[in-house]
Each structure stands twice: as structure tokens, then as C-alpha cells.
Nucleic acid binder design. Structure first.
Lengths: 210, 210
DNA sequence: ACAAAGAATGAATAGTGATTCACTGCTTAT
DNA sequence: ATAAGCAGTGAATCACTATTCATTCTTTGT
């Protein structure tokens, strides 16, 4: 034996992989999945195209990983909002706001995650991603029902409606053909779009006019 | 001059076009847009592939037309439900039910219209289609506000939420990988899935627990 | 210094199906 | 019957990139 995988090599490979991931992320954040070419990604990452395939089975797999990564950040933020103090209803409201506001702040990526037409393997990740949100919401709704601040209902079904209502409301504003620079700087709770969405959602959950 | 387009010819061409449209519709209803091959469509319609291109600019254009057609039927049904008797709230409920039940009855086509990844021109039609629903709902919500059976709100925003909530709720059940033969025969108002969706939506609109 | 084993390379290939277009065959008006 | 002109044909072409793989370069242990 002469060559043995050593720590140094492992690390170097990991770095290359990370560069590939980062550059893909960047490409997607700029122009979506559809326009992200393997060749360009390789170029940005400073590796040959073939090298991509030493780290990922296929372009689709690479994209699926990027999708998972981008998604995780978002889901974590929502989970965080749901883990804060306050009644379940208050926490749900915080979470919905988090979801919507973050999307509006990074519109291209948000659009890619929510609405861009993607290949089957990536679409699968999208279903998982939406389900992840739904699961978080479902749990919070259950807590709300136990606490008594949310009336009894089919928590799973309601959580799905929440995800749908937000996603649909965002598709228009996020659509790459229409995105302006306008909303980017919003920091406070006063975006009327976000507020209307939340009002509808919270009413749907609680059946209490607000 | 020797050849002149005559009524007979015009009609024959129209028939060929109709056959192409019908066969495309059938293909899509069976396996979605993605799997509908131009060659197969031509075969079914009894014309050469080239003939397709005498009637449509491109496959995408053909698909866009099929999408519009399929969509029109659905939108019309919802419009019909909204035009019936009763309070605005009652009519909205009828319309939501119509939407959901029809989708569950023709799951493959409904999935293609709601969630299948499609090319840009078709995606544009989808946006228009969703907007068409939203417009109908919006009008009804406005009427409800005037009638006093629906509290004052941003009708446009609420209508978008309605469309999103239904669509998202249907994506799972319609997904081709999961569709069973189960629900197909449901004729009455008792599908619990449909009822939960409607409950959430109507609560979201009216803020009244049901 | 050397050989063994990977890792990296990137030009060439391949797979896929939409689209074209030179040709054939009808239809029509005279 | 004839000629002009449009409709129909479908095998061949094209476009587009993801993917491959023979080759070159690095690393490692002796």
C-alpha cells in the first residue's frame, strides 16, 4: 500500500465540497435552479466539471442538497419563533411573521424554494420542506388547543392551510418577473401584506375576529 | 389564382386542430404534461408530427392552450357556484366545495393544473388561473362585506389565502405517487378533508367559530 | 526516489425529444 | 385537364447540457 486517505486529504476534499455547495447556493440565490449550470458552478468553485461528480451523483442530487440546506435555515427560524415565550397563539403568529418576512427579504431564493419549477428529486425535497413547516405548526396548534387559546380542530389540516395561505400570498410578490427593490429594507412589523396574511391565518385558526 | 381557402378546408383544418387538442388533453389527463410527447399526440390524433406545428407554434404553446381549456371548465364551475342563491358566505362555501370536490374527482388533471412542474409559458397560465379564482372569490367577499355577512377586510388578500389554502391541502391527496382509488366515488358533502378545509377557510373569512 | 492509489481534469460524448423542411399530394379555379 | 398554391408528411437535424472517462497530476508509505 502506498496511498492512504489521510486527514489532510479528507479535509481538502471537504473544503472542495463546501466550495461547490456554496457556489451552487450563490448561483441559485442569483438566478434560481433552472439557470444554474454545472459548468458555471464548477468555474466559480475553482474545480473542473468532472470534480462535481466526485462529490455528487448528479446535478439533481446537488440541487436537492442545496434545497435541503436552504430550507433548513428557514425551518429552523420558524422553529425558533415557535419555541419562544408566550401563548401558542402568540408564538404561531410570530412564526408566520418570521416565515413571510424572511421570504420577502431574500426573494429569489424564497421563490426558488416555494414556486420555481424543479426536477422530481428537488420537488420531493420541496414536499418535505412544506411538510416540515406543517409539522411545526401542527404541534403548536395542538399546544394551543391544550392551553385553550385555540379551539379544537383538525390540527394537521389547519397547519396545511396555513402553509398554503402564506405560500400563495407570497408567490405573487416574489415572482422574479415582478420583484422590485421596494420591500427589501422593511424591518418593523408594519408590512401590510404580512399583516393581512397573518390576520387571515389567525382568524382561520382561532375563529376570533381581530 | 388557383387555390383559395374554402369553407370546406377551413372546417377540415378546424377538425384536425380539435383532434390534436382533444388528444393532448387526453394525454395530459392520463400522465400529466411532462410525459405527453408530441409524437404520441400526433399518433393519437392521426396526423404527422409536423402537422402539429401547422396549428401551434410549439409544444409549449399547445400545452398552454390545453391548460387554458382545462382551467376554463373549472373556473366556470366555481363562477357558477358563486352565482347561485344565498348569502355571499353560503355561496363562497359552495364554491370552495365545488373546487375541492372536482379536483378530487379528476386527480391527475387537477394535479397537473395545481402542482405539476411546467415550462414557463404554461406556468404563466397557471398564475392567470389562480388569479382567476382569486378574482372570483374577491368579488364574492366584497359582496359579503356589503351584505354584512363577512367582516370588513382586504378582500384581495383574503381571496389569495383561500386559493392557497385549498391548493396546498389538495397537493398531498392529489400527488400522483399517492393517489388511491379511494375517494373517487364520493358524491355527498361528507368528505372530512373537504369539510376541514372549508371550515378553516370560512373561519378565516368570517372570524366566526363554526 | 519510487511506485501505488487516489483525485482532478475537461474535451468529447451521449441522450433526449422538440423542431424543421424538402418533398409529396390535395384542392381549387379556369 | 392543368397549373398554382396550400396542407400534410416524417425522417433527419438540431440544440442543449449533463455526464463520462482516458489521461494527467498529487499524495503517501517505503
Amino acid at each position: 500500500m502506498a496511498y492512504r486517505e489521510t486527514e489532510k486529504m479528507r479535509q481538502r476534499k471537504a473544503e472542495a465540497r463546501k466550495r461547490i455547495v456554496d457556489c451552487t447556493y450563490q448561483c441559485v440565490a442569483e438566478g434560481g435552479f433552472r439557470s444554474a449550470r454545472v459548468t458555471r458552478i464548477a468555474g466559480l468553485a475553482g474545480v473542473a466539471t468532472g470534480t462535481i461528480y466526485r462529490h455528487f451523483e448528479s446535478r439533481e442530487d446537488l440541487f436537492a442538497e442545496i434545497f435541503r440546506l436552504a430550507t433548513q435555515r428557514e425551518v429552523d427560524k420558524v422553529a425558533e419563533a415557535l419555541a419562544s415565550d408566550g401563548s401558542a397563539a402568540e408564538r404561531l403568529e410570530q412564526a408566520l411573521r418570521q416565515f413571510a418576512e424572511r421570504a420577502l427579504k431574500g426573494p429569489q431564493m424564497a421563490w426558488s424554494l416555494i414556486a420555481e419549477p424543479v426536477d422530481p428529486k428537488v420537488e420531493e425535497e420541496r414536499l418535505a420542506y412544506r411538510k416540515a413547516y406543517a409539522n411545526l405548526f401542527e404541534k403548536a396548534i395542538r399546544e394551543g388547543i391544550d392551553e385553550g387559546c385555540v379551539p379544537d380542530q383538525d390540527a394537521r389540516q389547519s397547519s396545511t392551510c396555513l402553509v398554503g395561505a402564506i405560500a400563495e400570498s407570497l408567490v405573487g410578490p416574489l415572482s422574479p418577473t415582478q420583484t422590485s427593490e421596494a420591500d427589501s429594507a422593511t424591518e418593523d412589523n408594519n408590512d401590510p401584506l404580512v399583516n393581512s396574511i397573518i390576520r387571515f391565518c389567525m382568524q382561520g385558526l382561532t375563529g376570533t375576529r381581530r
